[in-house]
């Protein structure tokens, strides 16, 4: 189980990386943390001609506090995200999610941008990005553009990122409410069978506003708008409304019906916990 042969480049600037990407065409692959890419290479599921290592790109690093929230460079390691005081203060949802990502050795190398670009429907960070209303900064041959996280994730391993583009950073507004984060995985560090990432604004013990994003259920992280809206009515109403938000897909661990059921359980538990905590 050895990776197929490829060439390797480690550009030092974003422009150089973009040029390499453009020149190589379909055979090029970016490698950041490599924690999802390298298994695929070792299994020869991918056979790139050129591996472009973007770990040298200073423009992609760092966590900074901004007026409206935070800016997270795409190369930020999960471990750094989890350890950041800025993240813990401004977007505690991200800090809550990090310990659930795989294991320490993976979190030390895996990157924020890599996780978003990989777009695994069961991954934690894409769901958090959607829940927090992140805007993703993308560099391409024609310059920069910004895409809302909600529009970025399109399907299983599918994103709005073009073949010739690089995800640079995420601009994330400060989290407007209490953290909601729960996931059900067979074993610690496994991808979730069903997970919930979100936040809830509370007025004493009443949820006044919330955003609920489910992962591991559908083909991508899904914002449960109907359920969020129905929270104002009751938890039962929200759980019922959730059926309209989700289109679960069966996997080896759960049927679609089971995922739907688990999503309702997570919704009830997360919201109840938030209310209890507030009270």
């Amino acid at each position: 189980m050895k990776a197929p042969p490829f060439r390797y480049a480690r550009p030092q600037t974003l422009d150089a990386a973009l040029r390499l990407l453009a020149d190589e065409g379909a055979g090029a692959r970016l490698i950041a943390g490599g924690q999802s890419l390298v298994p695929a290479l070792n299994m020869r599921l991918l056979e790139p001609t050129l591996l472009i290592d973007i770990n040298g790109l200073a423009e992609l690093t760092g966590i900074a506090e901004t007026a409206s929230g935070i800016r997270v460079g795409a190369l930020t390691r999960h471990a750094a995200l989890g350890a950041s005081a800025i993240v813990a203060r401004r977007t505690p949802l991200l800090a809550a999610a990090v310990p659930f990502i795989a294991h320490e050795a993976i979190r030390n190398r895996g990157t924020f941008g890599g996780s978003l670009a990989q777009a695994d429907p069961a991954a934690e960070l894409p769901a958090c990005a959607v829940a927090l209303g992140a805007r993703l900064e993308i560099a391409g041959p024609g310059g920069r553009r910004r895409v809302a996280a909600h529009d970025f994730f399109r399907g299983v391993y599918e994103t709005a990122l073009g073949r010739d583009e690089i995800l640079v950073a995420a601009e994330i507004p400060a989290q407007p409410g209490a953290t909601l984060f729960l996931e059900l995985a067979r074993r610690q560090g496994d991808y979730a069978i069903a997970g919930l990432a979100g936040w809830a604004a509370l007025d004493r013990s009443r949820i006044t506003d919330a955003r609920l994003v489910f992962f591991g259920t559908d083909i991508r992280a899904v914002e449960a708008r109907a359920a969020s809206a129905a929270l104002a009515t009751s938890l039962d109403a929200a759980a019922t409304a959730l059926d309209r938000d989700l289109a679960p897909v069966a996997d080896l661990n759960a049927s679609a019906a089971m995922k739907r059921h688990l999503a309702r359980v997570l919704l009830r538990r997360a919201c109840a916990a938030a209310v209890t905590h507030a009270a």
């Binding site: 298994p39 299994m43 067979r186 074993r187 610690q188 560090g189 496994d190 080896l252």
Partner: peptide, 28 residues
């Protein structure tokens, strides 16, 4: 509780990786 070689009707193993075949780990 965990381990199962899951085959489809065509005799194809569906979980032949250590990510999908669940061995017991310390946490559980």
């Amino acid at each position: 509780l965990f381990e199962e070689c899951i085959y489809d009707q065509r005799g194809q193993l569906l979980n032949g990786t250590l990510a999908d075949y669940l061995v017991p780990m310390a946490g559980e």
